[in-house]
Amino acid sequence: MSDSFADRDRIVLAGLAFYGYHGIMPEESKLGQRFRVDLEIGFDMTEAGRTDEVEATVSYADIYNLIEKAFSEKRFKLIEALGYHLIARLFETFERIEWVRVRVRKPEAPLPIVAGEAAIEILRRKEDI
Rank of each mutant, 00 (worst) to 15 (best):
V102R: 00
T51S: 14
F18D: 01
I113S: 14
P110H: 04
E117T: 05
L66F: 00
E98G: 09
E98P: 00
A6E: 14
A109I: 05
M25Y: 13
T57K: 03
V114G: 08
R75D: 01
A118E: 07
I24F: 11
D38Q: 02
I24M: 09
A119T: 02
L13A: 07
I41E: 01
E98F: 01
R50S: 12
I63Y: 00
R89T: 07
K74P: 03
M1C: 10
Y64F: 13
V100C: 07
T51V: 14
M45N: 05
A14V: 12
F43K: 03
I41P: 00
F76T: 03
F71C: 03
Y84R: 10
V37Y: 00
S29R: 10
E53I: 13
P112F: 12
E40Y: 00
L31I: 15
R34T: 01
I67N: 02
G23W: 03
D128P: 04
F76K: 08
R105Y: 05
L31V: 09
D128M: 10
E55A: 11
L82C: 02
E47R: 14
V12Q: 15
L39P: 09
I41S: 03
L16S: 06
D9K: 06
S59L: 01
K30T: 09
E80Y: 12
V104I: 12
E73S: 07
S4K: 15
G23F: 01
T57L: 11
Y19C: 13
E53Q: 12
I24L: 10
E68H: 06
L123S: 10
I79P: 02
G83M: 07
P112E: 13
D62E: 10
I11H: 05
L31C: 08
G83N: 07
R105F: 00
I87P: 07
F76R: 12
V104A: 06
T93D: 03
P107T: 07
R101G: 11
I97A: 08
A14D: 11
E98T: 14
V12F: 04
T93A: 01
G83V: 04
L82D: 01
D7N: 13
Y84D: 15
A56K: 08
A14G: 11
F5L: 14
